[in-house]
């Protein structure tokens, strides 16, 4: 396919160089501040070019390496299982909703959409997860709550199926005697790699960045996930410096890790996703061209 001429290409590249700088600089700031000497941060703020480099923050994390590795493991397991299962459930729900001939299409879409607006709040959700189903302090508690999260991805996937897959393909396959599931598995999914990659990536990020489920459902420190370890510290610092807790507040605050450590934890939390990302990008090509199937 013809693309734009090279001058336009250059302009677009320049645009992206600027955009990338805007996105990368704060991240570099994060990385450098995690290796800046603690007092230097407090005296001069963050800097891209620290005068004194110190790996104390990472050494501190190594101190508790087993806890961090375990948290990585929990996050990893929850992310892999959660993302795969949720992709399956989401697409299986979204596909029938995308079919214009599916009888309950509109009302079911509404049924899905409604969950995006109303939720009962934390208390009943907690009740269901801990009392009706005994998920407290299990790995499942890190997986199940985010499987569909809410209807967002279902409706997104539905829109993609409806707009990228011509009804004729489905009809002709049906006439050729293919079953619905076979059509879904053999034709629809391969044609929808970009949206699968999109939803998969989003769910991956949701699972990877999740700390709330760990906060709410996990008290066993063996099951904490990675982002919880970081967020617990961040939230505690905020809470302790904005609450009135009397004479022992100084000790409580002193017990919390320093700024460099927080930055280091943020860094080690982001890196794995960056590594996983290119994997998803591979699917941002049109799976099979629709034309090929039609032909």
């Amino acid at each position: 396919m013809e693309r734009t001429n090279s001058r336009t290409q250059l302009v677009i590249h320049l645009f992206f160089v600027v955009v990338s700088a805007v996105c990368l600089l704060p991240f570099f700031l994060l990385v450098t501040s995690s290796i800046t000497d603690e007092s230097e941060i407090i005296r001069n703020g963050y800097t891209l070019f620290p005068k004194h480099i110190s790996f104390a923050a990472y050494e501190y994390l190594l101190n508790d390496a087993s806890a961090i590795l375990r948290a990585y493991g929990n996050t990893f397991v929850a992310t892999v299982i959660g993302t795969s299962v949720s992709l399956l459930i989401i697409t299986m729900l979204a596909y029938p909703l995308s079919r214009r001939d599916f009888p309950w299409r509109k009302s079911l879409s509404f049924f899905v959409f409604f969950t995006m607006l109303f939720n009962g709040g934390l208390v009943p959700t907690y009740f269901v997860y801990t009392q009706v189903f005994d998920l407290k302090n299990t790995l499942l508690a890190l997986i199940v709550p985010y499987l569909l999260l809410n209807g967002f991805y279902v409706l997104l996937a539905r829109t993609f199926f409806a707009n990228t897959i011509p009804m004729e393909i489905i009809e002709s396959a049906y006439i050729d005697g293919a079953g619905e599931f076979r059509i879904f598995w053999r034709i629809i999914l391969p044609l929808s790699l970009p949206i699968l990659a999109t939803v998969g990536l989003f769910q991956l990020i949701n699972y990877w960045n999740d700390w709330f489920n760990s906060l709410i459902f996990i008290t066993d420190r063996k099951l904490f996930n990675l982002q919880y370890l970081l967020n617990k510290i961040l939230l505690d610092i905020q809470f302790l410096s904005t609450s009135d807790l009397g004479g022992n507040q100084a000790e409580m605050i002193a017990a919390l890790p320093k700024e460099g450590v927080r930055m280091a934890m943020a860094v080690i939390g982001v890196v794995p996703i960056l590594i996983a990302y290119p994997f998803f990008q591979r699917f941002f090509i049109q799976g099979l061209t629709v034309g090929a199937v039609k032909g």
Binding site: N119, P124, T125
Partner: peptide, 8 residues
């Protein structure tokens, strides 16, 4: 996950 807790 969503409708049951709406009772809340």
């Amino acid at each position: 996950n969503n409708y049951l807790p709406m009772l809340g």
